[in-house]
Design a protein around this nucleic acid. Structure first.
Ligand SMILES: [Zn+2]
Ligand SMILES: [Zn+2]
Ligand SMILES: [Zn+2]
Ligand SMILES: [Zn+2]
Lengths: 145, 145
DNA sequence: CAGTAAGTGAAAAATATTATCATTTGTAAT
DNA sequence: ATTACAAATGATAATATTTTTCACTTACTG
């Protein structure tokens, strides 16, 4: 995981944002996790180390991290708002374990043919898509036998 | 649109639900629309004709209609909970106009190859997906020039 | 070290959804 | 038709989620 404090500071400053301990704490929690996390979950994890951060700041920070492409906001099987470290820089999607929340990023969604076909058939101008795959990760799958 | 009152009544009764005027009103509003509607929007439309239906009943009714596969619950570009008449009976997805909300259903999402590849690579047991396409319908596209 | 704009926390407000409960009503059996 | 009763409803309250406001604090600049 190549997310040095320096790099974060750089990205924030580049865009005129200050590097506050709160922002650092939030990013640290997200960077440490390979599962998606809700704002509430992030709040709780942040609190274990740093108990004077308000939930509001979590929300505000997440908005900024999202804007700077440092995190992905995603739709989990059980909720429409959670966040992940953004690890691939290119267009990608998420395969999510509905039991433990673990996420595997994948590229190559390859919807262009479908989109072309539909654009032709419907005359829509298609400009985006939402795609998430759900399932059970190997660990949870074994555990459930 | 082949949604006769009789047919609705039948589906409801088959599953032990009563056919109330409220349920009929909700379904009528949804059946008349080719755009996705939020619970609030449905509430407002229902009220134009029938002002004594509570929002709670809208929610309850939508749950049931969803369970009976009479409506689709979907993710719109601007919100994670809206409803559409379910017109195709088979597995399908939605192409949504982000300006007017109009929805075109389409089948043939064809994610099986992708899912197979990922199942092999990740050892996940994949059991579902969320897919919505977004764009501008021909009318809104023209209007925006 | 200031000076200052940006950031923060606490609280309140705005939204969205679900639960509770007394009353009403659709249905089916008289 | 009348009745019996489980199911459904509306009003209200409760819960949950997200945003706004504002006085105070702090990270950055020079
Ligand atoms: Zn991602
Ligand atoms: Zn994609
Ligand atoms: Zn549909
Ligand atoms: Zn599909």
């Amino acid at each position: 995981m190549k997310l040095t404090a320096n790099k974060i500071a750089g990205v924030l400053r580049e865009h005129g944002y200050k590097l506050t301990p709160q922002r650092h704490a939030v990013l640290k929690v997200i960077a440490a996790s390979y599962a998606h996390l809700t704002p509430e979950a992030i709040y709780e994890k942040v609190h274990l180390e740093n108990s004077d951060i308000g939930l509001v700041t979590i929300y505000r920070t997440l908005d900024i991290l999202r804007e700077l492409n440092l995190v992905c906001r995603m739709h989990a099987p059980d909720g429409c708002r959670s966040y992940m470290m953004r690890r691939p820089t290119e267009h990608h999607h998420h395969l999510v374990c509905s039991s433990c929340g673990r996420v595997v990023d994948f590229a190559g969604c390859d919807l262009v043919d479908l989109e072309k076909r539909l654009a032709r058939e419907t005359r829509f101008e298609i400009n985006g898509h939402l795609l998430e795959l759900y399932g059970l990760c190997p660990d949870c799958n074994l555990a459930s036998r």
